[in-house]
Amino acid sequence: MIKVEKVSKCYGEFYALKDISFEIEQGECVILSGVSGSGKSTLLSLIGAFDKPTSGFIEVDGDIISKFPDFHASTYRLQKIGFVFQDFNLISSFSVKENILSATIPLNQSKKETNKRIEEAMNLANISHKAFQNSSSLSGGEKQRCAIARALVNNPDILLFDEPTASLDAKSVESFIKMLETFHHMGKSIILATHDVRLLDLKIKTKVIRLQDGEIIA
């Protein structure tokens, strides 16, 4: 379970988030919606332990992750979180498979186990056919699938997506939505930060949290 309790984040005098509180059950799908600058991405990065709140705390499965020292925050990102960035953040000189491999290295697994996980992740993200293609030569949709496979490879409980449909065509959005349904059925907790209205009509049960100027409005 993810518990966000009275979380505020300010940069100087500017409040990106103000007293945000909500809870997400395991396997739940939550959409953080709102216009640009409403605080969706900031909230997502706090849940992903990329940053710490100015006040309040975030608890994940009983651990207050917002107070984790760097090493524990890294372990949390490695094992519990799968983050898909808006611009995917792939290493451009690596192939698809090598990008996915990069997420497994700190786990110190055997080569056999690593390869098995990479194959599974690529199958789930439907990118196996591009395994050896350089990531810089992929289309937007393929890059996203590569980033999703990298997020899935360590079998995390929580998947975080930052504006996942921002650079996708209609067909890719459709295929992304199908993927979300699969992850939901796998029992993953999913949090999407988006202002794309197409994602508000998912077939799976979703909770929508609307943000405006750093505050929850609905």
């Binding site: 990329f50 760097d70 090493f71 890294s74 372990t75 990102r77 490695l78 094992q79 979180i81 983050f83 960035f85 953040n89 792939l90 290493i91 990069s102 997420a103 290295i105 700190p106 990298r150 360590n154």
Partner: peptide, 18 residues
């Protein structure tokens, strides 16, 4: 590149080791 590795779960020590 280091930022990406850190974002996907590499600790500072992992990056330094590499």
């Amino acid at each position: 590149e280091i930022g990406i590795l850190r974002a996907i779960g590499w600790s500072i020590n992992d990056v330094l080791k590499l």
